[in-house]
């Protein structure tokens, strides 16, 4: 268990630092690369949480597809590839009290309700079969709805981005 805790600590620190860099760095491409780090860290945390399949999907979809999209978006909108001073709002400091307040409330709620509760240690990895049984069983309807959302997103993206 110690090994897992150490792994968690290292990855968590990397993620928090990466996330902070994503929201503070003055370069869009750098921010995207920091985001890759955070997402990869999240995938690692999923493995710690016995969620193999979700971790793999995270890598494939996020790091593979979504990041490419982001980079394309950066490129197509001709954002400055180097440093840019105008990345933040003039009123960016509003964000600090709002997010700190939110963080305080959440930590208060979490510590008071979960305290020292431990995760079960003897759990096995959740098999992909079990997930698919759930998706195509009781959660079939959300799956359909999701397929619809994806279809709509594809069509919507084409309609929006088409030049005419």
């Amino acid at each position: 268990m110690v090994a897992q805790n150490i792994a968690f600590g290292i990855i968590a620190v990397i993620m928090v630092v990466g996330a902070l860099r994503v929201v503070t760095v003055n370069n869009v491409v750098h921010a995207a690369l920091w985001l890759v780090l955070v997402l990869a860290g999240a995938a690692a945390q999923y493995i710690l949480l016995a969620a193999e399949f979700v971790a793999v999907t995270q890598v494939l979809v996020y790091i593979g597809a979504v990041m490419v999209l982001f980079l394309f978006g950066t490129m197509l909108t001709r954002a400055q590839l180097g440093k840019e001073k105008q990345l933040n709002n003039p009123t960016w400091y509003f964000g600090i009290p709002a997010s700190l307040l939110l963080l305080g409330v959440m930590i208060l709620a979490l510590t008071s309700s979960f305290g020292d509760e431990k995760l079960p240690t003897d759990s096995e990895l959740v098999s992909t079969q079990a997930i698919s049984d759930q998706i195509f069983g009781p959660y079939l309807l959300p799956f359909w709805a999701l397929s619809f959302v994806l279809l709509a997103a594809v069509i919507g993206a084409i309609v929006l981005a088409r030049k005419d």
Partner: peptide, 18 residues
């Protein structure tokens, strides 16, 4: 300004949670 709306939204959510 969308960002100010966002700040208000999240702050309000935090207060509601509190």
């Amino acid at each position: 300004k969308v960002s100010q709306y966002g700040a208000l939204l999240f702050a309000a959510a935090a207060v509601a949670g509190l």
